[in-house]
Computed example of a mutant assay.
Amino acid sequence: MARGVIALDLASKHFGDRPVLGPIAFAVAPGEAVALTGPSGAGKTTLLRILAGLDRDFEGSLSAPARIAMVFQEPTLLPWRDAAANIMLTTGADAATAERLLGEVGLAGRGAAYPGQLSLGQQRRLALARALAAEPELLLLDEPFVSLDPALVEEMLTLTEAVLRRRRAASVLVTHSRAEAERLADRIVTLGGSPARIVSEERP
């Protein structure tokens, strides 16, 4: 298997008696952006959760960096804490770092706003800022632009593209959108079959 920031040699993943993922050899090089695509139910999010260390119930081996951050499909923010606290409480970042990160994602001056006072697009920006606070070696994004209107998708794509370029962290993006994959990824990996496997890999 190729060496990388993260390397997975998966034999299988089951939910009960049902096989979900078959043999998969997957690695991400330092600074590389990879998009995971495929039909609904192909196991993209399951694979991402394995990479994140959130699902350890699989057969195989995983070599992962110490610092991994994940941006979930839903922002998963603390509604009873303001934006700055959502960053600081979950990552240990100080107030100055939180304010800098809010500025980096276009939320400068919104540190005192609560999640319920933010639009969905702004909540997604806050979730990204929280992930960046971990200074991740690997950033995992699970359909971060879903449910946004086209104008907001374009804004978030531009923001994410800029963040990945500045940070030079490796990243894995789960998306159903070919346009998003081509925009953000150096390599597109498509899952398919049952149980799911890698059916194609290409450069956009």
Rank of each mutant, 00 (worst) to 15 (best):
L159D: 11
S147Q: 13
V146I: 15
E155T: 15
L107V: 10
Y114G: 07
F145E: 00
R110H: 15
G121I: 00
G116C: 14
P136Y: 03
R124H: 12
D142A: 12
Q122P: 02
Q123V: 04
T158L: 15
P136L: 09
L128S: 03
R125H: 10
V146G: 01
E154V: 12
L118P: 09
A162S: 15
Q122W: 02
L140D: 02
D149G: 06
P144R: 00
V105S: 03
A129G: 09
V146S: 14
L157V: 13
R124T: 08
E154H: 14
A162Y: 03
T158N: 14
F145H: 01
Q123E: 11
R130Y: 05
E155P: 13
L132F: 08
R124Q: 15
E137L: 08
G106F: 01
L107F: 06
Y114V: 07
L140K: 03
E135F: 09
L140Y: 05
T158K: 14
G121T: 05
E143L: 03
F145C: 04
A112V: 13
A131M: 09
V163P: 00
A129V: 08
A133R: 05
L152G: 03
G111T: 07
E154F: 12
G111D: 06
L126C: 08
L148H: 09
G106K: 07
Q122R: 09
